[in-house]
Design a protein around this nucleic acid. Sequence first.
DNA 1: ACCTAAACGCAAAATATTTGCTTTTTGCTT
DNA 2: AAGCAAAAAGCAAATATTTTGCGTTTAGGT
Lengths: 206, 206
Amino acid sequence: MASTTNKEAARPGGRSARVQQAVHEAVRTLQQEGRRDALSVPQIAELAGVTPSTIYRRWGNLAELLADVSLERLHLDTAPADTGSLAGDLQAWCEQYLEEMTSVPGRRGLDDIMASADDERRQRCRECSEAIMQTLRERALARGEVAPSVAVLMDTLIAPLTYHLLYTRGEIHPERLRGWITTALAACHAAHPPTPGSKFNPGELD
Amino acid sequence: MASTTNKEAARPGGRSARVQQAVHEAVRTLQQEGRRDALSVPQIAELAGVTPSTIYRRWGNLAELLADVSLERLHLDTAPADTGSLAGDLQAWCEQYLEEMTSVPGRRGLDDIMASADDERRQRCRECSEAIMQTLRERALARGEVAPSVAVLMDTLIAPLTYHLLYTRGEIHPERLRGWITTALAACHAAHPPTPGSKFNPGELD
DNA sequence: ACCTAAACGCAAAATATTTGCTTTTTGCTT
DNA sequence: AAGCAAAAAGCAAATATTTTGCGTTTAGGT
């Protein structure tokens, strides 16, 4: 009943992999075509050609299974565009992420992940966001830009973004996004005030 | 069968109220003494002296019931201390809130609320936080301090705080909190730059 | 006092979940 | 290449849960 997450099972052999794939696909199929309210383990098992007990033993319950499927989806969307500046990259990525997460399947995926009792999964989400911020930051530094630390980006960008996704249903204006980004970059510039004589400004903070 | 949340029922009469109270108390009791993993509707119903069907009809399922109970608890903790300055008030409240939410029951309560499918409940949480920020802000303005808008406080304080509560299990150093508060107030001061000739500088922090 | 609709209790029915046991499969070893 | 031990899956019975129909109680209004 515990936390048999999935991929890193002790024995991820052929059949196990096949079952996992079949079950995941069954979930996705039923989520697409079907009713959002009803979605049972026996139903998924039948479509996947698997016994319910298999699902229960591997995932524990429906919530964990749904969270697992949603997390897998979340991992795909990592392809930040290069707009030539950190501010632009952040804006572009946030807008794209926002659009994805306010869509019906996106919102449901987020809910499914939050509904899971396994907080290791939430950690993964955080790490995923951190990785993206890291990528954008390093790209900026390579350009010679000043860039806030990943921690600052998380606190000033990802955090409010996520907060709004979770706690309001209203849309977020790109204007608001721009404000957060400005704040993030301003905080960075404040920490390294542009001294008149300095040749360059290494982007370190924290 | 949908969202008979609770208090604002069309008929909140004596018996309904009594049942609600009994069920809520049963949940609290079982949560305290009992095992966190198992906690079933029939079990709660028995302790509350109520039929399971009553619970199912009123709350829909276990997750909604737990979220309902947790939300009620959350509403009690509103008593921000007055430390004499906005920075102090924010720091004090955040520390107290943090301690409460990182405790075992606090963390479980948060999880229960996030696990609920009803996003109206999350909205309530947000409104609760906004109300506290509003209180602190007005208190600061009454003192003659400069204070950021509630929106800014939400974005720079509540959002990162909540993000860490949800996405990491690690502790948050009060130092980190202080950093967020500084940022929030700094953003405010940037909007209202301290003119040299001004008699006093209200929102000075440490 | 009476009436109506909402809430509840009860119990049967329908579903979902757990569990014991057997069989298949996998990764490794000989 | 065959064999072995452990892991995972199937199957079916046993449990537990959720749903539902129907009669009864009760709150709120006329």
